Amino acid sequence: MNEHAHIVRSYDEEQAALLAELVRMGEMAVAQLEAALDVVERRDDKAAERIIGNDEAIDALEQQVNADVIRLIRRGPLATDLRIILAALRVASDIERIGDYAANIAKRSMALNLSPPLPHTRGLDALGRLAARQVREVMAAYVARDGQAALRVRERDAELDTLYTGLFRELLTYMMEDPRAITPCTHLLFMAKNLERIGDHATNIAENVWFLVHGEELMPPRDKRDDSSTTVV
């Protein structure tokens, strides 16, 4: 094998390692999110503490991705390779934020456990399961470099926004009817917003998949249905 072929093979191997790290990050973030939703239902403080502690592993992987990206950039990548590297950096940042939101949901579940159970946690679980599915599907699109699959994930963010807005209104109404519910419902409102933001980060990843596949070609405009800021009860 000549020197040029060896360099190309080494570069390809480094890109493959970078992709593997991002896939692992995505799997960890979704697992964190699903575990956080589970502890909300089970009211399990010890499990919540473990989820909060596990967030450090996702942060460590993001730092590794950043280090790998810097090393690849120093190799003087071509334009196509630079797109791959730039998309990886952005995707890693979005996944890290998803992990943060999952940890925050677990943290708030501990505060929620100080109050009697509320039926609205079922609505939160439905919202969270949809957000987790969005993350799983967009990571699959990223691995496959499937721009159309990424576009479908991005379009379905409107469904998540609709669920979030409905839960937001329901919680506000409940708080007005029963002042004793204000504290636990406030925690649920923040948790629901975290899930809505996870959907936004899945959308960001979808847009980076599109950038990876199509370059600077613009994506179609998307539907946005988060009406919580204009909700009047």
Score class of each variant (00 low, 15 high):
residue 65 V to S: 06
residue 123 G to C: 05
residue 90 R to Y: 04
residue 131 A to N: 14
residue 110 M to E: 10
residue 148 Q to L: 08
residue 147 G to Q: 10
residue 59 D to H: 12
residue 60 A to L: 02
residue 92 A to K: 12
residue 53 G to F: 05
residue 46 K to F: 08
residue 114 L to I: 03
residue 90 R to W: 11
residue 125 D to Y: 13
residue 147 G to I: 02
residue 154 R to D: 00
residue 103 A to H: 09
residue 68 D to W: 00
residue 151 L to F: 05
residue 132 A to C: 02
residue 140 A to E: 15
residue 119 P to S: 01
residue 131 A to R: 11
residue 144 A to S: 12
residue 143 V to I: 12
residue 66 N to H: 11
residue 84 I to K: 15
residue 56 E to K: 15
residue 84 I to F: 13
residue 141 A to Q: 12
residue 57 A to T: 13
residue 104 N to Q: 13
residue 102 A to H: 06
residue 82 L to M: 14
residue 144 A to T: 07
residue 90 R to Q: 10
residue 63 Q to R: 15
residue 110 M to Y: 01
residue 36 A to Q: 08
residue 151 L to S: 08
residue 154 R to A: 07
residue 152 R to M: 12
residue 119 P to L: 00
residue 74 R to E: 00
residue 92 A to I: 03
residue 154 R to C: 01
residue 122 R to L: 09
residue 46 K to Y: 08
residue 31 A to S: 15
residue 153 V to C: 02
residue 133 R to C: 05
residue 94 D to T: 02
residue 125 D to N: 10
residue 116 P to V: 00
residue 80 T to G: 07
residue 60 A to I: 05
residue 130 L to N: 04
residue 67 A to L: 14
residue 80 T to Q: 11
residue 70 I to N: 10
residue 141 A to V: 07
residue 87 A to W: 09
residue 107 K to C: 05
residue 109 S to R: 11
